[in-house]
């Protein structure tokens, strides 16, 4: 596997948590009609890595992680997630999706189901876990995100921060090997951002492979072992957080960082 890695990865060899590849993206491109959203993306994510993806809006960062669980189709190149090649084969897509958890900007909890039912639905119907066992798993993860007492309420009765933590618990109930976060704190009131970030930090400490699209640079400094900067559908720069923030190489990265850290 290491042989396959190209030269530009070698300088980051010491950052790797393991040699096991979780996600391999080769020359992946995507178009919306005529608009080229992603251009020739190459990315290797190793097991246990925490990657933060940042960049200006419209840079394709959300689209990139949505391609990883096939919420968006890519038109060119290759994506292998956990050893499964993403193609038009629905079986592969469903397999990848059940292994990869995703947390959305707008939580996307199911409003017609209670918190507990939100968490047990996929284990019961996709993994065929018995209901009782699924409920135990769900309560375990609800405890972990610190809202077991809300289990029998409906999403509409919870605050935004609580809903996002439920969404994280819902994903965890599927025992995913990889977690994708698509701007998980962007829709939250400032005082609720911390409770969600804390949950994510805890998850990172447990060794979860995480790809996080976020503008929370504090979070990136604290938990990421690689920060990726994207612009105009390309990966412009990637580095470990210290180097990335203190010594950005590309002028576009410098401009972006000065804009979001400057105020």
């Amino acid at each position: 596997m290491t042989d396959a890695s190209t030269a530009h990865e070698i300088d980051r060899a010491q950052l790797r948590v393991s040699d096991e590849v979780a996600i391999q993206i080769d020359g992946m491109s995507k178009w919306y009609g005529d608009f080229n959203v992603l251009r020739e993306i190459d990315l290797t994510v190793y097991r246990g890595e925490r990657i933060v993806i940042c960049g200006p809006s419209g840079s394709g960062k959300s689209t990139l992680i949505r391609c990883i669980n096939a919420l968006e189709e890519h038109q060119k190149g290759k994506i292998v997630v956990d050893g499964t090649l993403l193609s038009s084969d629905l079986k592969n897509i469903d397999k990848v999706r059940s292994e990869v958890g995703m947390v959305f900007q707008h939580f996307n909890l199911f409003p017609h189901l209670t918190i507990l039912e939100n968490c047990t639905l996929a284990p019961i119907w996709v993994r065929k876990v018995p209901k009782k066992e699924a409920e135990e798993i769900a309560m375990h993860f609800l405890q972990k995100v610190k809202i077991p007492e809300q289990a029998h309420k409906y999403p509409g009765q919870l605050s935004g921060g609580q809903q996002q933590r439920v969404a994280i618990a819902r994903s965890l109930c599927m025992r995913p090997r990889i977690m994708l976060f698509d701007e998980p704190t962007s829709a939250l009131d400032p005082e609720m951002i911390k409770e969600v970030l804390d949950t994510m930090v805890q998850l990172a400490e447990e060794g979860m492979t995480m790809l996080v699209v976020t503008h929370e640079m504090g979070f990136a400094r604290q938990v990421a072992n690689r920060v990726i900067f994207m612009d105009e559908g390309q990966i412009v720069e990637q580095n470990e957080p210290e180097e990335f923030f203190n010594n950005p190489k590309s002028p576009r990265t410098q401009l972006f960082l000065s804009q979001i850290l400057g105020h």
Binding site: N69, L71, L90, D94, K95, R97, S98, E99, V100, G101, M102, F104, H106, F107, N108, L109, F110, L121, A122, W125, V126, R170, S171, M174
Partner: peptide
Amino acid sequence: LPKGQYEAADSLGLDYWK
């Protein structure tokens, strides 16, 4: 229905009918 509901269902690995 918001598109997010379809996406959340998909992202959990539920097939179309489920």
